[in-house]
Design a protein around this nucleic acid. Structure first.
Lengths: 110, 110
DNA sequence: AACTGTTGTATAGTTTACCTATGAGAAGCA
DNA sequence: TGCTTCTCATAGGTAAACTATACAACAGTT
């Protein structure tokens, strides 16, 4: 159906990394809520996208995880940025800016 | 390998539509050149991406095609925007702006 | 005439990456 | 007790872009 709220392909890692960089360690559910909230419901991370992405990020060593109790007393897996993750974030933000500037140059003036 | 120059997934239709809207009817090769040139080599449309995309756009009635001789006297297929294509362009640019604003809000400060 | 480079189109097959759908467990509340 | 919320997870599907390849026609060079 390809309906409404959607993460632009290729930006999900960046959004997750940035959330962790800003707030500190968070669990998956919290990351999803955070992104949705800050974006004012424009960006909505589906669970079926988020958790597989986090698994891949664990494998890539961009994050490490630790089981804890959440603020609501549920068991939750907290993800924390590694130095490699921070580096990746920098790289992705830079590339994103570069490409977006080029796209804007194309679609902006008449 | 996911190397260097790349169109962000989801933006290809918009870039093609915008090129046609700006310049008028063009052939595929010309569209690719145009995008690469205006973006100063940041965006590079591969043929294996471009032509399938144009086929899909024909099916969606966003463009119509006509065989002609090119400026260099070769046979080439010229694509022209339809009203539906123009409408789609407007829709995509709007959505793009909305989503990008949300992403920037997330990754920009701090 | 043959070769080479450029222009131009096309498709088959693969991969990326996100989505849909589904399930499940534990806590809190009515 | 049953409902809702929180939290994680995965299997399967799909859209769309990439890689690799092929073909054809003209231009310019030798």
């Amino acid at each position: 159906m390809r309906s409404r709220p959607e993460i632009p392909p290729g930006t999900l890692y960046m959004l997750i990394l940035k959330s962790l960089a800003r707030i500190g360690p968070m669990h998956g559910y919290g990351i999803a809520q955070y992104i949705q909230q800050i974006s004012e419901d424009v960006l909505q991370v589906e669970e079926g996208s988020l958790y597989p992405a986090l698994q891949r990020m664990l494998i890539k060593d961009w994050v490490v995880a630790e089981w804890k109790q959440s603020e609501n007393n549920r068991r939750a897996r907290y993800y924390r940025l590694t130095p490699a993750g921070r580096k990746q974030l920098t790289r992705e933000v830079g590339e994103f800016g570069r490409v977006m500037a080029a796209i804007v140059r194309l679609i902006e003036p008449v």
